[in-house]
Design a protein around this nucleic acid. Sequence first.
DNA 1: TTAATACTTCATTATATACTTAAGTGTCGA
DNA 2: TCGACACTTAAGTATATAATGAAGTATTAA
Lengths: 226, 226
Amino acid sequence: MENEFSEIASMIGDPVRAKILWALLDGRAYTATELAVYADTTPQNISMHLNKLVNADLLSVESQGRHRYYNYSRADVPYAIEAIASLIPGNNLTERKLVEDKPVRYCRSCYDHLAGKVGVLLTDGLLKQQFIYKKENSFEVSGEGEAWFNSLGIDINLLKKQKRSFARPCLDWSERKHHLAGSLGAALLNRMIVDGWVRKEKDSRTMIVTRKGEQAFFDHFKIDVR
Amino acid sequence: MENEFSEIASMIGDPVRAKILWALLDGRAYTATELAVYADTTPQNISMHLNKLVNADLLSVESQGRHRYYNYSRADVPYAIEAIASLIPGNNLTERKLVEDKPVRYCRSCYDHLAGKVGVLLTDGLLKQQFIYKKENSFEVSGEGEAWFNSLGIDINLLKKQKRSFARPCLDWSERKHHLAGSLGAALLNRMIVDGWVRKEKDSRTMIVTRKGEQAFFDHFKIDVR
DNA sequence: TTAATACTTCATTATATACTTAAGTGTCGA
DNA sequence: TCGACACTTAAGTATATAATGAAGTATTAA
């Protein structure tokens, strides 16, 4: 057991791999080239490291044409990353993190979908309008909901074809309620970023709801996020 | 920031250092020689590694005569160790391993408090009886709970005065749920050991629930641990 | 006082693995 | 269909650092 433990830890500990894992904390998937630039190394090298991370099941890849998008394979990974980060000396978490937590609590990306208070509200809104409903361990989209998602340019059938789970509930650590995850949650967040409803803060998982977003949330989800 | 992160992770990742950190998970402090035997290496080598871990503020030393006792410098360290351990692949698969892991999964110490199935059940029991309740990122003790803890000889006010966090939720890698950590969790485990509810297995983090303990868990926590 | 124990320090060696150079796939657009 | 691009694979090199050997400091017990 200690051997496996040590393997994982040293897998995370290499400078280049640490940078990769760090970069992914913002919830986006990145291509090998992007990560090579970020980590300031060559494509061959980053490729080798990414390969190791995938083999260790810390990352997973998704091919899209000639691009390969890398991301965490599961939510435990960013959780462990943050646990290690909390060990950085002189990280006076008491004062600083409490302040930082505030907006993060409110609205943040969790892996690749929306979490925090806004994420939960949004999911509640979808449930209330019966665009989605809960079924055992997943969410299902109603007929009405499918039309609604389509009106936002989100193709339900296309998402269902993906290997990853379609619409799973993800427990929110700050709200203690479920928010919408899976490919549907990801597609929704993507849409919202593209349309400028929310904006990513630099180097953080905090999301900012724009004025446009506030209006849109009210119009489409019937929720007041203020 | 990524550099410090990588330094910490690779500090944990070295095979010998990983063994050290792993051994300390049972909550006891160890001497350099003991750790050298455990990690199957020479005194010089273990000394060098221990030195690095102390410099990185992951461990602290206490001299007692010609012995030097090493232990975690703070509670965040074992938390991070557990978070990394939760990434070990195939943790919930393969028949054989399930059998091997059984006692450890069932009941074990996590640094200085109780984890595993029993630890989670116990925490759930306390929540259900409303002796503790969750508040943001920590547990709080109710008035009723305070009286209950006092009846076990645990002084809440005394524990709250300690520097370390009082009652924080700690994610359990085998159960994927939170169990009670912090000084309250430690005091509870201590009480349970003193009263002979649980017993430490030699050279392992496995805890054995005694017959007396089974009865006591039912009486005090209203849970059936069998 | 002496010898043994517990542990550390320093200089040297050994080795694992990250990186480089070179040569490939497969995909896309002109 | 060609060339540029995104990325991977394979073989060889370089380097960081873990392990060793030798020597040294406290501490205890005889």
